[in-house]
């Protein structure tokens, strides 16, 4: 049986888990193609009109999988990844939204709730539908989940060592990249690692000799520690993680500047953005927002990143000159 996994949204965070899980259960795993103009175009055309860009991209990937003739498309309903904190409502409604968009697709969508206490989504109770639906034995499922968890933890460990997710997902020999300045890149995995949607921003960074640090490279404990000063949490888990990471970036001397990469129409980010703008200024960290959308041209990303790096380099150079003067 063929299970299709859309290369969008949480693919960039959980694919190693899903691949191992389904393969251990005897399924063949098929992913959609990399995001391309035609996937984006069809997604924009078919998706709910007023929704954010990542959801439109996801819709395009679902259609791409339908063309590939899979038996099921896996669209889990992410509800919570930490006690009392929820995912963005669009994630919670995603399976319904996809089912509502197309005729006769309902039977093809494989979905279940994911309610987890941590980012580790291997808790057994989430997956009992597999027993009912496919007649998989309890023991086998538990074993597959344990194996998937192990794979995922390995992936996360490397990720936290500083390998970016695309390196880990696409390369047999992942590489780390260095640079003469370091930028903290804040953004959800599906914006930061979708090379098409963000105009391959990592290659722009590499060309300009910039090292990039992202939230997924941070230890969760560090992220949550930074959130303790807040009386209230953000409503959405990954927004919390970006905020916690942002405060870590603001404290760290080795981070020369912060870029927030956000997709047009992102509700959670509209609440996150003022915190980043105001507090990065307070902490004297250069900060910039790059907004990506379906019609964004590459040159606008390059111009902004270039000008931002010029700013940082000049600042650094001046500080060094000043330090020399004092000595």
């Amino acid at each position: 049986m063929k299970i299709g996994i859309p290369k969008a949204l949480m693919y960039y965070f959980y694919y190693p888990f899903w691949k191992t899980l389904f393969e251990s259960l005897g399924f063949e795993v098929v992913t959609s193609d990399d995001t391309s103009k035609s996937i984006l175009d069809i997604g924009v055309k078919e998706a709910v009109a007023e929704i954010c860009l990542p959801m439109k991209v996801y819709t395009g990937h679902v259609l791409n999988l339908l063309e590939k003739g899979v038996d099921y498309i896996y669209v889990p309903r992410f509800v919570s990844l930490r006690k009392g904190i929820f995912m963005c409502p669009k994630f919670m409604g995603l399976p319904d939204m996809i089912k509502g968009l197309f005729d006769r697709i309902e039977d093809k969508i494989l979905t279940h709730h994911i309610v987890s206490k941590t980012l580790d989504i291997s808790e057994f109770h989430n997956y009992t539908i597999f027993i009912e639906k496919f007649g998989i034995g309890k023991k086998d499922l538990k074993k597959a989940l344990a194996k998937a968890r192990e794979e995922w933890l390995k992936f996360r460990r490397l990720n936290k060592e500083g390998y970016d997710i695309n390196e880990l997902l696409t390369s047999n020999k992942p590489q780390k990249y260095d640079g003469d300045i370091t930028i903290g890149l804040l953004g959800y995995v599906y914006n930061v690692y979708d090379r098409f949607v963000n105009m391959d921003i990592f290659s722009v960074f590499r060309r300009l000799n910039i090292k990039v640090v992202t939230f997924d490279m941070m230890d969760e404990k560090v992220i949550y520690k930074n959130l303790r000063n807040f009386r209230k949490n953000m409503f959405w888990e990954f927004t919390n993680m970006l905020l916690g990471t942002a405060y870590e970036f603001m404290k760290r001397d080795d981070i020369d500047g912060i870029i927030h990469l956000t997709a047009f129409g992102c509700g959670p980010d509209s609440i996150l953005e003022p915190f980043l703008t105001i507090d990065s200024e307070k902490n004297k960290k250069p900060f910039m927002t790059i907004r990506i959308d379906e019609q964004t041209g590459e040159s606008h990303v390059i111009t902004r990143v270039e000008a931002f790096t010029d700013l940082i380099r000049m600042k650094k150079y001046k500080a060094e000159e000043k330090a020399k003067g004092v000595v």
Partner: peptide
């Protein structure tokens, strides 16, 4: 600020 660019903004879309 101090003769160097401290911040900038460009119109978005």
């Amino acid at each position: 600020n101090d003769g160097t660019i401290a911040d900038f903004a460009m119109n978005t879309v």
